[in-house]
């Protein structure tokens, strides 16, 4: 029995710490619907799992106290017990019920986080192309025709659709308080649906190890009401310099850069690898060309309408 106490007290401390600081932990302090879904799942699973942990601890403590050799008569001979169908059915049944319930929750949440967040009326999502290069993030706003490096301005109360890809190693785009991460890879575009409910400053980073400069591969996220966001876009269009191909290639050089802002996006001359999600090389070659044209056309038309 004596050695249950350290374990139990550690558990107690953990529980207290968890209760005390769950508002401070970023993931459990969501500021958007996707992060809220995830935080809810996390708290739910912590609850159920604590129940299992406590049950196992209790059973173990009971067995160890009751059936210690020191508590048994000297001549006690433990019986031979093969097993019991009912007991074993319970041991299988309870975990199956728990797992089934969690699976049910998990599947629902999967479809939630993989879809455009609901509850924002018919507002069109803001599309942002977020691409990483060693060790920076480039954010292109094709509709607005602007691009930023290492910082992200977003409007609140509007769905956000991030198109992720990478100029280099696999990275993972993550803003813990708005929602979980997703990979950015060099040969395809992945989509992450987020939304922010409250204005504020959030931490964003690459979560997937990508070499020497990985630790500092972060970006700042500022969420603000739509009208402030519109003002910012206007301001940028007035003051920022255009992003040329030459300038962009400089930006791609490995290293860390501060924040910077441009008009125009690199999507014009270095389009995202959209349109080929699957394998064989000649197929992907073709679709690559295809998508290149597509996105070029798209961009042009958008730009014509955007540029004054």
């Amino acid at each position: 029995m004596k050695f249950k106490w350290p374990v139990l007290s550690v558990l107690f401390v953990i529980a207290t710490v968890l209760a005390g600081c769950d508002n401070r932990l970023l993931v459990l302090d969501p500021k958007g619907p996707q992060a809220a879904t995830q935080a809810k799942d996390i708290m739910l699973s912590i609850g159920i799992m604590s129940f299992i942990v406590i049950a196992v601890f209790a059973l173990l403590a009971f067995m160890l106290t009751k059936y210690r050799a020191s508590k048994q008569p000297k001549d006690y001979e433990p019986p031979h017990i093969e097993g019991n169908a009912i007991v074993e059915a319970i041991c299988v049944g309870i975990p199956i019920l728990i797992v089934a319930y969690l699976s049910f929750v998990s599947v629902q949440s999967n479809y939630k986080v993989e879809a455009r967040p609901e509850g924002y009326g018919d507002k069109e999502p803001l599309v942002v192309y977020a691409s990483s290069s060693n060790w920076k993030w480039h954010f292109s706003y094709p509709e607005e025709g602007i691009e930023t490096v290492n910082y992200l301005y977003i409007p609140t109360d509007r769905p956000l659709e991030f198109k992720l890809y990478s100029y280099g190693p696999i990275t993972s785009f993550w803003i813990p308080q708005l929602g979980g991460q997703k990979y950015a890879m060099s040969d395809m575009v992945t989509t992450l649906h987020l939304a922010a409910d409250e204005p504020g400053e959030y931490m964003g980073r690459n979560a997937n190890f990508s070499g020497k400069g990985f630790a500092e591969n972060t970006f700042d996220v500022t969420a603000m009401p739509q009208d402030e966001f519109d003002d910012w876009v206007k301001e940028v269009k007035k003051t920022a310099k255009p992003l040329t191909e030459e300038k962009f290639n400089d930006l791609l050089e490995p290293g860390h850069l501060g924040k910077s802002t441009y008009t125009g996006t690199h999507l014009d001359f270095s389009p995202a690898p959209e349109g080929h999600h699957h394998g064989s090389s000649d197929e992907s070659g073709k679709s690559n060309e295809h998508s290149e044209h597509d996105s070029m056309d798209d961009m042009h038309s958008e730009h014509e309408s955007m540029q004054h």
């Binding site: 996390i42 986080v113 979980g180 997703k182």
Partner: peptide
């Protein structure tokens, strides 16, 4: 072995938590 059971249970149940894929978007790589 007796220390294994409680400690491994903690490790095991957090594995179930990681298995919930939507939530895993938040645990992954952390």
């Amino acid at each position: 072995s007796m220390l294994f059971i409680p400690l491994f249970t903690i490790g095991g149940v957090t594995g179930v938590m990681l298995g919930m894929s939507a939530a895993d978007y938040q645990y992954h790589n952390t």
